[in-house]
Write a protein that binds this DNA or RNA. Structure first.
Lengths: 344, 344
DNA sequence: GTGAAAGCGCTAACAG
DNA sequence: CTGTTAGCGCTTTCAC
């Protein structure tokens, strides 16, 4: 059993109160008493009971993060980087992270409710926001502190950090156009996700700005996974008239699409140019390396965490809503459009 | 503010005790009282205060997991799958997971100590065990419940689940030999990790069993990352006499090695056969798909979690130590040895 | 300077 | 069947 306050008190023949105050650094404890207390506390390896302290202080010093897992083969680098950012920033500020894994859906909102109502956590971090987001609605209703990575369509007045998908997609389309591409396909993410919607809208607009038509045959939907990207790309490659470039809603699907292309002995960056979105770690390790729209996932994670902790500590946020401009990272998966246009 | 027991009690003009017992399903509460309590509790959206309950029950219903993060670009699918398994199994048994991220080293052990001594968690899950593992030592000393994914050299009497790396590596070497390979290189993981040591020993033995010599020039060390695999493979490819096959300590490095090969316009599975270890999700999405030694990461994670929870609930483990036999998954990254031997 | 007492929200032993 | 009391380990008044 670990040492408790009363053990130290008994050892030194002091009251629990005095020991507590000595450790807390109160000024009304005599220097020598403090020294004695500190010494024995250290010797006994004393660490305060977190639960007791929480009950008394009415705060847990814990932030909650619910990971939307999609089955056993859950291996999205996006979440690893996110978790590293959240975890490291939380640790730096002496907070722990309580997580639960649950597939998106009604059970997910129940988990949020449980975390909030049981007072297990002081605040929540939300990611992969949806246009109509029940989690955000729940927390706004209950005035529960949270910060999200991503915006939402049905609520606007809450703290978030997000990447300007609009700017990113426009840069990507412009780049493809400058390489001579006119036939551009798009692989969308799930429609309920806010960023998917925003990126799609950006694509529509950017194409129009470049006086390019969107061919409905070249528009696909995927689930953000590598397998999903592969399936969609295979459908695209089965078409008799193909685009020369494909813009993809996230890197993981883009990587899957690359595999599909290569399995047909076509060359990515020549036969089909591919651009992803995120710049996850593995993106620079593909062959060829993936051209992508970079959003600083790790930085955003630390930022969101830092903002949440500021909120919890009653500091006001100078900038409760931050829209970051992404950067187009040019690598080998994009190249000039083939000189001879596709047969149509 | 969420509803508390006393709110329900006040509402119904009952004592807090009765409400508590009604909700707990004690038999000594009249059916109609119970019905009234249940109804109002539901109406008020009552969820027990986790902290208060913990303090009273002296258990948190939380398991701890410390993620060894390696810098901002932390994106190892191994950990994603692990986390999904731990999280899902914990949720199924009504436990939460408290995590902290910290780089391996002295600070890591401090975090374990803090989790244990502050009674924040009831038990811990340990992964990537080391030959000489300070975390295991700490928990054994304090008789703190834990289950690990992996064994350790300096302690043996604790509950763990592990893959029989010996059997896996032997199967891989035998397979390569059956394809005609005689010049086989090996890319090791960090030496302090127990599984790295065991796999390396297995390689040495399997080579001897096949009457093959180990060429020291073909032995490399990596940090388990894609970048590490790439660097090592580049060193290998710079050699004037190369092996025809490379066995790699984990999939991530194997994927990095594949990229290095492809960047020299060589063909994986022809010019160099590569075998990984783990069978992480992305392994089947590489081009060519990666031949690898499969260990069921998600299953192991659920198993380890389940065992820990059994320990916490005072159940005895029928099998406190489980050694699983891995399966060699044949894919495209391995092929016959070139007919013409390398120039030596 | 130090200690006694109260209380955070809950559960459990004990009365009635 | 229900309520009163005590206590989990800590912090925080309030006395002395």
């Amino acid at each position: 059993m670990p040492a408790r306050l009363k053990d130290i008190a008994a050892e030194l023949d002091l009251s629990v109160t005095t020991v507590s105050r000595a450790l807390a650094g109160y000024s009304d404890v005599s220097p020598q008493t403090r020294a004695r207390v500190l010494a024995t506390a250290k010797a006994m390896g004393y660490v305060p009971d977190a639960t007791a302290r929480r009950l008394q202080k009415q705060r847990a010093n814990v932030i909650g993060f619910i990971v939307p897992t999609f089955g056993p083969r859950f291996s999205d680098p996006f979440f690893s980087e996110l978790l590293a950012g959240i975890g490291n920033e939380a640790a730096r500020r002496s907070y722990d992270v309580l997580i639960s894994t649950v597939a998106p859906g009604p059970a997910e909102t129940d988990t949020y409710r449980r975390f909030i109502m049981s007072r297990s956590v002081d605040g929540m971090i939300v990611v992969r926001t949806r246009s109509d987001d029940a989690r955000i609605a729940l927390m706004l209703e209950n005035e529960f502190p949270f910060v999200s990575f991503g915006r939402s369509a049905n609520y606007s007045d809450f703290p978030w950090v997000d990447t300007d998908g609009m700017a990113g997609i426009r840069a990507a389309v412009d780049h493809l156009v400058s390489l001579g591409h006119r036939n551009i396909g798009y692989l969308r993410g799930p429609q309920e996700l806010m960023f998917s919607v925003l990126r799609w809208q950006a694509f529509v607009r950017a194409m129009a700005e470049n006086n390019l038509e969107i061919n409905p045959e070249w528009i696909f939907h995927g689930d953000l996974s590598q397998g999903g990207g592969r399936t969609a790309a295979n459908q695209l490659l089965d078409l008799s008239n193909r685009p020369s470039a494909l813009l993809v809603g996230n890197d993981l699907m883009a990587m899957g699409a690359m595999t599909a292309v290569q399995q047909r002995n076509l060359v990515v960056g020549q036969d089909l140019s591919i651009i992803g979105f995120d710049d996850i770690g593995p993106a620079e390790h593909t062959h060829p390396p993936l051209t992508t729209i970079r959003q600083p996932i790790y930085y955003i994670a630390t930022q969101v965490t830092s903002m949440l902790i500021q909120l919890l500590e009653d500091e006001t946020l100078q900038q409760p809503q931050q829209l970051l401009t992404p950067e187009l990272v040019l690598r080998g998966s994009t190249g000039p459009a083939p000189a001879i246009p596709d047969l149509t």
